[in-house]
């Protein structure tokens, strides 16, 4: 299952899309997000199953473009 990874490096910044991981479940997705996107000591990081993302804008789409 593909999960999108979001993170922020500072509390006063918005969450930003940093990439995606392929994982069997939520717990593994957490490990992989941590291991793959470790370029920052993020203050917050989270993963969202790609299937849970609902596009809103007209050209909204998944995967999330333009990380």
């Amino acid at each position: 299952m593909i999960y999108e990874v979001f993170a922020r490096k500072d509390h006063h910044q918005e969450l930003k899309h940093v990439g995606s991981v392929d994982a069997a479940d939520d717990e593994l997705a957490k490990v992989y997000a941590w291991a793959l996107y470790d370029e920052e000591s993020w203050v917050e990081m989270c993963v969202v199953p790609r299937s849970a993302i609902i596009p809103v804008t007209e050209h909204g789409r998944v995967p999330v473009w333009g990380n």
Partner: peptide
Amino acid sequence: YHAHHGRGWFR
């Protein structure tokens, strides 16, 4: 995260 990795793969 070591524990998460072990548990996740066990499952």
